[in-house]
Design a protein around this nucleic acid. Structure first.
Lengths: 351, 351
DNA sequence: TTGAAAGCGCTACCAT
DNA sequence: ATGGTAGCGCTTTCAA
């Protein structure tokens, strides 16, 4: 490693004090135009890049934010959310000189410890709270630690700044789509009950059905995985083949695309044609949904946008932190909308 | 944010000098057992956690390493490699007090700049070089910058420390599997030619076929995506249906699972049954491969293990850096092996 | 406007 | 064995 060029070198070269260099480089007043110019040139000549470490220590900032992904590694593999979400985060972090620290913790408690140590050694100035659970223990934790945080798709009573993408709209559109197609028997494959977003989608589905004057239909608990979709199909169809179940739900809403794809696969195996016998819709809008046959009808979210807004909010919260605790207003990105493809169609004749 | 407990507080409480606290806390000699005990207690009582910033500045280390993911966001979504790879990295970083900084750059040049700025402001002490390309520009860059780096699945002439998982073995097993099943007409859906790993798999495939006394078969270039697999199937089968192509490759090796799954889907659409008419195998061992029908025969890699070893090497390289440039020996993790599932079977009768 | 100097929290060296 | 002190590279305050 070649020895670094420091602010001292720049000051020497420009023939000024280091404090002037600091002021000049940070566009602060108190430096004459002439001096500023000399300093800028010197810095340029020397290829000076301010040391993050020095700044960090002095400014009491890490210039980094943290994202802790919990659940097992398979999630990052298959969950399309994180890739785009992180991409969105990056687009705002980088221009503002911040970096993303990614941690993975498989266990729930382990995750909490991650946040704790991230805060304890001040490795980050703030964190994202993703995949929020009901009564998520991270909320009191960051509050206690005084660690700036923003929630991602948080519930309505979330006590911290949050960015949300409305799900109700898209789900209502889906119900409308189903009803228009003549469906009257519904089923929902939910996410795990302990997650806020699973919860919300389930509720919105129930509400939309009620608003349309429909029966609530069955709800089976899934887990956002392909496998969960498979076993959900078994439960929805009572494990029986099509012949054994002349009357069955004809419109199924799965809480995410991956489980919807699993559901479709198992439905086919059981002899139910999609969409002739049963219509299936997912939630997310992952690429894979465009490849399976039939292509998956879904409610398309925008994780990249969510990441961007969440990062923007987090940096704002960090900037606002030292002074007042002036509340950052929540952000709602454009609602998720229904995207009709081929996995949904007219209701079959039954009864 | 509550004011931090610093080493000064601990020293005051224990009634010793801060230098003694530093020594005691870092398990360095020069402190009596009695004093050490008092210091430890004081630190414990105060809940002292050393500030990363102070250490960083003093030790001239960031205690962080960088991973730059290039290509578009879709990659992180669908490529199973990164989730597990990062998980593996974490398992060694965390215990050693290091953190992972993740950057994303969609464009190739942008990626280079990421490495540059990461090094310029000393945000990281080392970087991973993943997805290596032929004549990858990052190699001269990190060499010029004097930035410790380890390559992931690098080629044989790679001039820096690297961790590799042998692919030749599994591919040879696959060829053996195919030949034993009576296959004589082969095809390969490669990865993009500019990537080392695409290159290597293709070569290993050709070598293994030659070693078995087989014709080389056709090679079509894919791009590691599902879509690439779809269009590869069109090219392999000449875009025709099964009836139009009585003689066609009966054993296809795709350079990764995702493209294999796309290939299978398209093959089915064209009327080729898998595995009755054509056997298909992939490479990676992603979860999705166990769900599709037929379940995908593949060569299973271990990204988690690769991540673990790569991180271990990188930290070693960083530790070794200041003193000698003593070369860190390369690591070969257990070879990838063939995993037979249902997408491969006996060759159909032809000719 | 400019410069000197005091931290920020830690490590490391050198007296004692 | 202990304590004092000089950095590490920057920002910020305060004199000049």
């Amino acid at each position: 490693m070649p020895p670094r060029v420091t602010i001292v070198d720049v000051a020497a070269r420009a023939g000024v004090a280091i404090s002037s260099v600091s002021s000049a480089l940070n566009n602060r007043p108190g430096v004459s135009d002439d001096t500023r110019k000399r300093i800028l040139e010197a810095a340029e000549d020397l290829g000076f890049v301010p040391s993050l470490r020095g700044r960090s220590l002095s400014a009491k900032r890490a210039f980094a934010v943290g994202l802790v992904v919990h659940r097992d590694p398979y999630v990052l593999e298959s969950d399309p959310f994180f890739g785009s979400f992180i991409g969105g985060i990056e687009t705002v972090l980088d221009p503002r000189g911040y970096a993303l620290i990614l941690q993975m913790g498989s266990e729930r408690v382990e995750t909490l410890d991650r946040y704790r140590s991230l805060a304890a050694n001040r490795r980050v100035d703030g964190v994202f709270l993703n995949e929020l659970g009901v009564d998520d223990p991270r909320i009191p934790l960051v509050q206690e630690l005084g660690l700036p945080a923003v929630g991602v798709n948080a519930g309505p009573a979330f006590p911290l700044p949050a960015v949300r993408q409305d799900h109700g709209r898209g789900i209502a559109e889906l119900v409308d789509h189903f009803v228009t197609l003549g469906h009257r028997r519904f089923a929902h494959v939910s996410g795990p009950h302990e997650f806020i977003h699973g919860h919300q989608r389930r509720r919105a589905w129930g509400d939309a059905l009620a608003a349309a004057g429909m029966e609530p239909g069955v709800v089976v608990e899934g887990d956002f995985t392909y496998e969960g979709g498979v076993s959900a199909a078994d439960r929805v169809f009572g494990g029986g083949s099509r012949e054994a179940r002349p009357v069955h739900p004809t419109a199924v809403f799965c809480s995410n695309d991956l489980s919807a794809i699993g559901f479709m696969a198992r439905a086919s195996e059981l002899g139910f044609r999609v969409p002739e016998d049963v219509s299936v819709a997912g939630y997310d809008g992952i690429e894979l949904g465009t490849y399976v046959r039939p292509a998956l009808t879904t409610i398309r979210t925008n994780p990249r946008l969510i990441g961007r807004e969440a990062a923007r909010m987090l940096l704002d919260a960090i900037d606002a932190c030292p002074e007042g605790t002036r509340r950052i207003p929540d952000v709602d990105v454009d609602p998720a909308h229904l995207l009709v493809r081929s996995s949904t169609g007219p209701a079959p004749l039954q009864d």
